[in-house]
């Protein structure tokens, strides 16, 4: 909770089990548990209804950060409507690096700033590893 009493809520959602997978990896790496909503999984209640019900529970002044799997996908399209609420922040193209940074960021910094920085860092983390120059020795590492 921040000094002003507003709470940040994080929601992961996306097609099939992708958000559950990201949540499970965050739990493993960071030990932080994040809410997720699987979309279109057989036998589960419609995800949008569940998200709306979840959001209803939060006080209006709280910040809600929704992270979806893919730009232009139906899940993100559904979530777009929610950005009309001033306290909802929507991010698409979520991967583990992006979600992890956002949920572990401190409470002090402005959420918009956290999101912009995290997107940049996550982008930088997408690499064709075969083309990453192999560099042996201590170059690029530090000393005391």
């Amino acid at each position: 909770m921040k000094g002003d009493g507003r709470v940040r809520h994080f929601i992961l959602t996306g097609h099939s089990h992708i958000s559950e997978g990201i949540a499970s990896a965050i739990e493993f790496v960071l030990g932080i548990s994040v809410s997720y909503f699987n979309a279109y999984v057989e036998g589960e209640e419609f995800y949008l209804d569940k998200i709306l019900a979840e959001i209803e529970k939060y006080p209006k002044e709280d910040e809600i950060i929704i992270m979806t799997d893919i730009l232009g996908g139906s899940v993100n399209n559904d979530m777009m409507k929610l950005t009309q609420m001033p306290n909802v922040h929507l991010i698409c193209g979520t991967n583990l690096a992006l979600a992890a940074q956002i949920v572990m960021a401190g409470d002090e910094q402005d959420i918009g700033q956290i999101i912009r920085q995290s997107i940049q860092t996550a982008r930088d983390g997408i690499q064709y590893c075969n083309e990453v120059a192999v560099s042996d020795g201590l170059d690029g590492l530090d000393d005391f």
Binding site: V132, A133, V134, S135, D136, L141
Partner: peptide
């Protein structure tokens, strides 16, 4: 070298 590179990344 590959492990060193991974550490740097």
């Amino acid at each position: 070298p590959i492990r060193v590179t991974s550490v740097k990344l």
